[in-house]
């Protein structure tokens, strides 16, 4: 499908730039590690209770680090009027948003992997016990975050208060997704079987992803062309 190919080209271009400059990943990765460190002063890192809230800790770290990545996402199109060039090219608005979401997804997954590693060491949590389920959860939840990040990164790109507005707008919207991810992660870290309660949250994740991806595609032109 042509739109998909265009989206992948956009993602590939963004990742090429990111691999060369490493701006977003370095900033987001460092930020994640710092927050994990700060949390260690807020909670007793070794206690059993920490294992119960580990999911919450991690997904907050991912959300905060994500904002740094999403800010850069469309901001890197501003110099030299590259955004205008892209919008007037054969790439449709929906493909552009999709491509940016793919790039956000991969960058945030990289930061998440780093964070999990550091988290396991700092907090003595064995996060690798259920790798496939954890991977599936991370991809599903991170996709939702990435789409919202791409949409509102585009929406706020020309605003003077972009760095402030983006987190303020996206965090309340992400609450259902974060709750779902946290609940499932807590179950996985405690090595509990995924019961009907966790599967309910899995469905919430799926609905969130589908609804907001569709909405993003539908409103892409409205948001990008103004």
């Amino acid at each position: 499908m042509k739109s998909l190919a265009q989206a992948l080209s956009v993602a590939r271009k963004d990742l090429a730039i990111e691999l060369r400059t490493k701006e977003s990943i370095n900033a987001a990765g460092a930020f994640a590690v710092v927050i994990l460190l700060l949390f260690s002063f807020a909670f007793d890192p070794g206690a059993d209770a920490t294992r119960e809230i580990g999911g919450g800790l991690l997904w907050l770290v991912f959300a905060f680090a994500g904002a740094l990545i999403f800010n850069r996402g469309f901001a890197r199109e501003l110099p030299n009027d590259c955004l205008d060039t892209l919008l007037s090219s054969a790439v449709s608005g929906a493909s552009l948003l999709l491509g940016k979401s793919f790039a956000n997804l991969l960058m945030l997954l990289a930061v998440e992997f780093l964070s999990l590693f550091v988290f396991g060491i700092f907090y003595d949590v064995r996060w690798w016990l259920r790798p496939l389920e954890l991977a599936a959860l991370c991809v599903l939840a991170t996709w939702g975050i990435s789409v919202i990040g791409a949409v509102f990164g585009a929406l706020t790109v020309n605003l003077r208060l972009r760095e402030l507005m983006l987190p303020v707008i996206i965090y309340p919207l992400l609450i259902p997704l974060l709750i779902a991810a946290i609940e499932i992660t807590n179950a996985l870290f405690s090595n509990r079987p995924l019961g009907s309660y966790e599967l309910l949250w899995g469905r919430v994740l799926l609905v969130f992803d589908i609804v907001f991806t569709a909405l993003a595609m539908a409103l892409a032109e409205t948001i990008l062309v103004n």
């Binding site: 609450i175 409103l219 103004n226």
Partner: peptide
């Protein structure tokens, strides 16, 4: 345009937020 787009996202999210919480 932009606030209308945000409003649509926000209102649909409100439904999901209410049920989730």
């Amino acid at each position: 345009r932009l606030s209308a787009a945000l409003c649509v996202f926000g209102c649909i999210d409100v439904v999901i937020v209410w049920k989730s919480i």
